[in-house]
Design a protein around this nucleic acid. Structure first.
Lengths: 155, 155
DNA sequence: CATAAACATTTTATGCTTGAAACAAGTGCC
DNA sequence: GGCACTTGTTTCAAGCATAAAATGTTTATG
């Protein structure tokens, strides 16, 4: 009976922990979205795409982008379309495969991204400032274990 | 100079921690959304509204809902509209204030929610199972500090 | 009382997101 | 070489999300 109660409590604790993770994520995302919007008329999804592209000079295929960002293919199409309209990104043909294209940052996109990324890092530093070096370490390993489990289960 | 490097590293560590929080949240949400969809043709936003309503038998005003769930007023309007269409929720007049309505679970909504909530709790327990009692505790306090900070800053 | 301010909600425009279907182009294999 | 299969991307319909404006209603205040 003690055993049952303990198990049940743990399950409730996990639910509470999940709700808290969700709350933190939503609050920080809301704050970052608002700052991005007022500072550069930028959205988080567009910033995320630019961040992914910024790490590879040769650019990425649409399918790579949706894989890295974990969003659907069709979603990436729309976001990239808008970035192209704004001149921050361009689609280049892939030699030898007429289905695919490589998406790359334009020079303007690179300049804007570098500026945004620096400020974005300071914002995150500020918003997570209640957590020190030790807290970050334990957070990282705990969350890492959940991610590992999810990735091995789902692929 | 040592000082500068240390500060800079901490900032990068916070950024990495934030990206990891984001990744965990997205992965778990994707998993829960998929299971909700296939099991009951239910969405997470609708489930969230029902969960909020389930905690108060007298129901909640639309503005209370958007406050608790931290989403915009207009958003709640649409979600509640769909729940009403499905017969899971209903709008009732508030005596003495013709502006407001109280949104309440219907009996059907209550039955369905109780069923979903029990399974949902087991799913979360499973998905967070890599974290034990002690991990939950430290996670709770660390994230709690961030939330407190954000709430005192923004209101 | 009139009327300005605050409140509760909906509407509108725009963008993000998904899942499924469509389409086109490459790959393997008999 | 033809035919199934896989891969890369887009399109579509539906729903979620925001910010801002609009609509009604209540409250405060001079």
């Amino acid at each position: 009976m003690d055993q049952d109660v303990a198990v049940s409590d743990l399950s409730k604790d996990r639910l509470r922990a999940w709700l808290r993770i969700l709350k933190v994520t939503r609050m920080i995302e809301a704050e970052l979205r608002e700052r991005m919007r007022t500072s550069w008329d930028m959205t988080l999804p567009r910033f995320d795409v630019m961040a992914a592209l910024s790490r590879v000079s040769e650019g990425m295929k649409m399918s790579d982008l949706s894989g890295v960002l974990r969003v659907s293919n069709g979603n990436v199409t729309g976001i990239v379309d808008r970035l192209v309209t704004d001149g921050l990104v361009e689609r280049r043909a892939v030699e030898g495969d007429r289905r695919a294209n490589r998406v790359v940052l334009t020079p303007e996109g690179r300049v804007l991204f570098d500026e945004m990324a620096a400020v974005h890092e300071r914002w995150v530093d500020e918003l997570l400032s209640p957590i020190g070096a030790q807290g970050l370490e334990t957070l990282r390993t705990r969350l890492g274990r959940i991610i590992d489990r999810l990735e091995e289960t789902n692929g």
